[in-house]
Every structure is written in C-alpha cells, then in structure tokens.
Design a protein around this nucleic acid. Structure first.
Lengths: 259, 259
DNA sequence: GACTAGAACTGGCTCAAGCCAGTTTAGTGG
DNA sequence: CCACTAAACTGGCTTGAGCCAGTTCTAGTC
C-alpha cells in the first residue's frame, strides 16, 4: 500500500497524480504527447469526462498544454527573460546602446520588438497618483502604453504614467520613439535623473483581457510590477505598471543593504 | 447587440462573464454568496454541470471561493504582507527588536509565528550550489526549514541553505532559536555581515504539496523567491528559497540605481 | 511524385441524471 | 430557553451519451 488514504482519492485525482508523476520522472518528457482522453478513460475504466477532468488539473497547474484536435503535450519550459535591477543603469544604457529589454531578449537569440500603442492624456488612477504624490486636483498625466514582444510573441505590457507637468512639451507626451538613450535619457534632460526605483511586486491569475492580449496559456499566472522612478532629489517622476507572463519572465534584483 | 461574436461564446463562458461583471460592479460584493449551481442552471436554462463549469472558471481566476455545503462566495481581498528590501537592514533589526516578518505582520494587527521545523545537513541542490559558489565536491550545507504564519494561517515557507564550512559549530547548524538579532546577527559574528542581496523572483502555480502545506486556495499562484545573502567581501554565504502565497504576500523593493 | 478528399483521430463543450458529503435551518422535545 | 435531530439545502464528483471543430494520416487521383 503506497498511502493510507490513497484509495480514497477520487479517480480524476488518481489519474492526474499518476500523470504528474510520470511527467516528473521523465516517462513523458517536455513536448511529448500524453495519451488521449479516450485512451486514459479506457485505461482507468472511467468515463471520458473523468479523464478530461484529470487533464484539466494538470493544465491548471501549468504542466501541460492542450492543442485542439492534436493532443495534450507536456509543456516546454523556455528559459525566463530575467529583468534585472540594472535595467535602469546609465552605463549599461550607454554601453550597449540597447534598451535593457532588447539586450536581454537578444542575449537569448530571440528577436525583440517594442510597440508603443498609445499615448494619451488621462487622470491617474488612485494607486498611481499615490505613488506620484499627486494632489486630488491635479491628476493629469501622460499615459504611454508599451507592448513587448519576443519573436513576435507578446511577453509583457507596460503602462507608464508621467505627470503632465513634467511631460508637457517634450517627446514624452508626443512621440512613440524616444530617441537616443530612450525614456530615461529624456527624463534626465528634464531635470529628473533616475536615482532610485521602487518596485512593488505581486502575482495573480490574468484577467480575461490579459489572457487574450498577452496570449497567456492556461495555468500560467502573471507578475504585476508597480514601478516608480525616483530622481536624485527623492521626487517620483514616473510610474509604470508592468504585467508579465510568468512563464516567460522572471525578475532578478541585486541590491545593497541600506541602513 | 453588445458584441459581434457575443452569441457565439459557449453558455459556460456567458455565465462566467456575467458573474464576473456583477462581481466587478458590486452586485456581488466581497464575501457575498453567489446563486447556487442549481439556481444558475435554472436561470440560464442549462444543465447544472454547465453552471458548475462557469463557477470553476471564476475559481481558477481567484475571484471566488467555494465552501462545500455552504455556497460560493466572492473572495475577500485581504491586504498583502509587503516584504521589503529593508528586511535585512541592521538598524531596523536593532530598533524594532522584531524580525522583519514579525514587524510586518504585527503592523497589520495580526499575530505572527515562525516555526523552524527542521535543521538537517544535506547536499545543496544545483541552483543553490551555483549561487553559493560551491564546488562539485563540497556541497555540504545546513538546511533550515522555516514556516511563517499569520494568525495561525500559513503564509510562506523558507528553506535556507548555509555552507557547512560556515555554519559548523554555530547555532546556525544546531538551534531553532537564533537568539538576539536573529539569523543575520549570527552571520555577522561569523565574519559575514550582510552587505548585498540578490533576489530572483518568479511566479507559478503551486505544486500539490504546496497546496496542502500552505493551504493555497484555488486560483492563487505562488511567488518563488530565490534569495542570496552576500557579505561585504562579495561572498555569498546563504541562500534561501521562499515560497509565498501570492494572495497574501507581495514584495516591495526600494533600491538605488547603480552604475 | 504532388495534390487532394475524406476517414479517423484529437480535444471542447454540453446534457441529464445520480450519489455523496458537507452546512444550514427549521422543527421538536426536554 | 436550550439542545438536539432531521430535512432541505449546498458543492464535489462521476457516469455515459452526444455533437462540434480542429488536426493528422491515408488512400486515391491526377
């Protein structure tokens, strides 16, 4: 007897557990096709529904992906894009000439693309206004929406909010193309050299909009990063909310301990 | 007509979408009970299975929780515990006298508990050995397993690995209780004052073990943080893998930009 | 040999029914 | 008034059936 309560668990659980073990021990390596729902049902002597339910569990866990008409396959784990705390380093910016995102994607031999899909003027949402220290009256901000792709696959979205008092009249409020040195070079010209960042990180399941926009597969959460850029005088000048597919992105911070 | 392809979506989707909208617009506020599966099925003229499937979708999204026998309820969003980068600050450590975890939990008016459930000597796993810079021969480490609770509810686990060459003979290798100033005070005494940290963050769905150990509800991912402590000479002296329930924990880093 | 139509697969989703195991509630007896 | 019981709920899980829409393979045709 393998386990005390082993025979009490429902058939769907049993099938799922078996498959999970077999995935773990290499019986079904990444990319391999699992037996069909009908085959599993026959093998375990259950209804097809029950086998499908078992497979659903594995999908929710992010272990397998189903392809309609083709079969269910063990998920291929692609290496994560590691977004580092050095993302904003000036020397890195100037030495590579690439944006940190492009540098990271290129390093993995993939093709990077960043689309600025919209630049609008809106009132900042509460959490953003809070981080920017905006008063209740003047919440006018420039909102820039950026989509990040690797090999034409969407991997993250970033929505940047800049107080209109700062962006007014500059490229920040008007142009998708930020020119040489990108976003933070422009902020520096406007008297806001980036000195610190604050990043508030949480994870959750994607909304239906994010599922379709980012093509998030079943059983994959998103990382939600609320980023605040702070200048050398301690003034926040920009807030960006990043939403990242957690199966393709990770974060990598390296920082000093301050007292 | 609200949407072009609106009537093409399957009944289960339609029910789920309706409920999601009603949760969003406050028809069903947090804590409120949704109609029963049987009631929904009757209302939409579908089989009970189909209504159950719709509710399942919302569960996977983390919007609702089902209580067997009682009903399905809109999830109450409790405030996140925010684990900050100042977690390791010495002055904070010395001023509050509390460990950073305890301080954060107490601040929310909840009761903190930390259990050290095991201290063993093992060979470090690959990723850990890598971060610690251990050679292939000497991978012996002290492994400490810590469980963190808030109001007796498990919220995170941390497994700390310390090279045996460092922990040997000290409290680190033997005692669950770390004494005054806790873990990092001991490292400091051993010549490893913490100067930098590296934190590699990813998010994923919990494994079945984590689901039972951390009591992770349906539709809630975990944050997986691989933390490395680095001393003033740039030597890594400790690696901890934290697994956090993402519905109860967030991370909050505030750091300088380095060039 | 290249192309194509179709058969034989695959998963997606639904139905209607039933049994089980929890919870809540209403009623009953002390 | 309280304590207890039983009925009426709730979700959990399964069965076996069916239709649909994709994909893959195969056999036949040009």
């Amino acid at each position: 007897m393998t386990s005390d309560q082993g025979e009490r668990r429902p058939p769907s659980r049993r099938i799922a557990d078996d498959l999970r073990d077999q995935i773990a021990d290499g019986t079904y390596p990444p990319g391999k096709k699992l037996p069909s729902e009908r085959a599993l049902a026959a093998q375990y002597g259950t209804a097809r529904n029950t086998a499908a339910e078992a497979i659903d569990m594995l999908r929710r866990e992010g272990l397998v992906v189903a392809k309609h008409g083709a079969g269910v396959f063990v998920r291929q784990h692609r290496p994560l894009l590691r977004l580092g705390s050095n993302r904003y380093s000036r020397t890195l910016r100037e030495s590579t000439g690439l944006s940190p995102y492009r540098a990271e994607v290129t390093k993995q031999g993939r093709t990077a693309r960043v689309d600025c899909t919209s630049i609008t003027r809106v009132d900042a949402p509460d959490d953003v206004a809070d981080r920017l220290g905006l008063s209740r009256e003047d919440r006018s901000v420039t909102r820039r929406e950026n989509w990040y792709y690797a090999d034409d696959e969407p991997v993250q979205v970033g929505i940047t909010y800049i107080p209109f008092s700062i962006s007014e009249g500059s490229l920040l409020a008007t142009s998708a193309n930020m020119g040489k040195g990108s976003l933070y070079a422009r902020f520096e010209e406007l008297g806001h050299p980036i000195a610190r960042i604050r990043e508030e990180i949480s994870a959750r399941m994607p909304t239906p909009e994010e599922v379709s926009g980012l093509a998030v597969p079943d059983g994959v959460p998103v990382l939600d990063v609320l980023h605040t850029g702070i200048d050398d005088q301690g003034r926040p000048f920009e807030v960006t909310r990043f939403v990242l597919r957690a199966d393709l992105n990770g974060l990598d911070y390296n920082m000093p301990i301050e007292d």
